[in-house]
Design a binder for these strands. Structure first.
Ligand SMILES: [Zn+2]
Ligand SMILES: [Zn+2]
Ligand SMILES: [Zn+2]
Ligand SMILES: [Zn+2]
Lengths: 129, 129
DNA sequence: TCCTAAATGTAATAACATAACATTGTTGCG
DNA sequence: CGCAACAATGTTATGTTATTACATTTAGGA
């Protein structure tokens, strides 16, 4: 295992995500890991579930795809935002306390208990403009 | 047509969405509109495409589902955010200028041109807590 | 060791979305 | 009106994403 407590499949998936410059779908991952012995979607989805729980990978809801976390130790509780270029598919991961605070405020005002927030800005990056 | 310039299918889909208290998937919509003559997923998806373009409906990326717009004339350009209760599935549509400004700033700093932003807070509402 | 919980393997199926192509309806212009 | 151009529709097939169900193996602690 190259990462802390990861199992074989989790490690394979995370490494593959780490190598990729752009998000990968579960089936992209499956295709690229067939030669490592992975054969079924569920093997990928199970690994991704754990990795996203641990905060080592993130799911991009608007793409149905996944990226490795770009931060060393990305807390799963904090708000994470993504910029996604629709031309080159590159992803920028960032967070913004002010945005986070405003959304917390919205929630508090309504007694709404946030569980998971997704914030994805799709557009065109500087390089592709 | 009960709405402005909508075609028959668009009108059927929007009305169905309007009646629903919770988001509906394309196939939910298809099932509930079969007796109105709709038979194929594409008929639903095409109507949804137009409705979301017009800002009369919104897609919830994290649910693969759709809601009627809760605002009278919801500009498609402004940032729209959603709170989604994972227990009762109710959705609150809102916007926040400060959040919007912070994201604009993030984009400007990088010459990133936003096209479409999705912001979805999943959690538990006051009633379900 | 033995028990238990976590992880894995495998097949089948469900849920979501689009491609391709033929047809019909609408609008505006000569 | 008659025609062209475009938008919307109908229909079939297929592609893509995700989960259910169940059997088996592995890892770690009493
Ligand atoms: Zn991260
Ligand atoms: Zn780009
Ligand atoms: Zn709206
Ligand atoms: Zn609720």
């Amino acid at each position: 295992m190259t990462e802390q407590n990861l199992t074989k499949n989790q490690d394979l998936v995370l490494n593959q995500l780490g190598k990729s410059k752009t998000p990968m779908s579960a089936y992209d991952l499956l295709d690229s890991l067939r030669d490592k012995g992975l054969k079924a979607p569920l093997q990928i989805y199970r690994a991704l579930d754990k990795l996203t729980e641990m905060g080592l990978a993130h799911r991009l809801e608007s793409l149905n795809a996944f990226v490795a976390c770009a931060h060393p130790n990305c807390h799963e509780n904090e708000l994470i935002a993504f910029g996604i270029c629709e031309k080159c598919n590159k992803v920028w991961e960032f967070s913004d306390d002010e945005v986070s605070n405003r959304l917390d405020l919205w929630a508090k005002e309504r007694d709404f208990t946030p569980v998971k927030t997704s914030l994805e800005i799709r557009g065109i990056c500087a390089k592709c403009a």
